[in-house]
Design a protein around this nucleic acid. Sequence first.
DNA 1: AAGGGATGCAACCGCGTCACG
DNA 2: TCGTGACGCGGTTGCATCCCT
Length: 347
Amino acid sequence: MGRSPCCEADQGLKRGPWTAEEDQKLLAYIQQHGHGSWRFLPQKAGLQRCGKSCRLRWTNYLRPDIKRGKFSLQEERTIIQLHALLGNRWSAIATHLPKRTDNEIKNYWNTHLKKRLAMMGIDPMTHKPKRTTLSSAAADPKNVSNLSHMAQWESTRLEAEARFTRESKLSRQVRANDQPAEDQPLSSDQILRKMPTTFAPPRCTDILRAWQLGRPHFPRPAQGNDHSRNTGSISTGGHFFSLGLGNIGSDDKSDGSAAFLENNEADKGESLFEFSAVFEDCGNGHDDTQLDEVYATRRLEAVGGAEWIEDENLIESSFDHLYEVNKSYWSDVLYLVNCGPSNLPVF
DNA sequence: AAGGGATGCAACCGCGTCACG
DNA sequence: TCGTGACGCGGTTGCATCCCT
């Protein structure tokens, strides 16, 4: 039944653990010729293995850009948070953890993180406290559907942000290398002039919270280097929240994070680990700005854009680049946000 | 010291997707 | 449009090592 294995046992191909000699042969061949077609690689490289086995060995072990060894606390948190959003989509999760393979992350989840969450009384599949999962409110099919819907949106957003990061970086490199000096990033004002009159460009991509908190409007960006500019912010009627680069929820007071934790039930579960970790790391003497910045940094790292936050000038221009290179996405965002919750499409 | 269960991780399996003829 | 092959992905297996009794 199903597709036959790519390498039958009677073909005399070796299976099981790789020897150092085999590793060396594979490594040497790929370094010299690249991998090209995996199907024909083994015989060319002088290996008694099937192509699939070679590919796996290369992608999961031999590739030079793989970091091996213990996962850091930050990596653990990223995995937990992304798993809450993406589920068992290991390859998608792996794209947010540089130098880690999907197989390694999957193994680490199954052998460490899943158990740890279970011991903490948290359902590793739903990422909610087990008690809550069984409660009548959570068991309500409407709520379950709502949460699932939200998770789908958040998942899409995360992937989009990661894509933006990559594309924006590429775009900047291309501009830096090939473009004349006058082809500089558009200023915020220039972008505002290009936008439809109804909207100014959003300073974030968090459709989900925009949806949760009501129909948003997009204020002109604050000038200078203030906090809301760096984290990306949107106001929605009576609410204010900082998102995008930072994704920090808040109410309409400016002292954000604590209020967010109190007010937004849906996010409590979703961000439980990251917030508690931020509080933990900032210690008792934290101020809210510090909390926001730490959270912003981690959020950004989770979507693969850590470089931005380390370069203040880059942050300043990134929004503009993002908008320019992703116009179609922004228009989708604006459309969806203005659809209102009841009209959002269900995947 | 021995053996049996638990754990961690590399490797395999089979299905889905995509490109190409 | 359909068939086929290659590749990628997630689930599962198997084995080496560790730990406990």
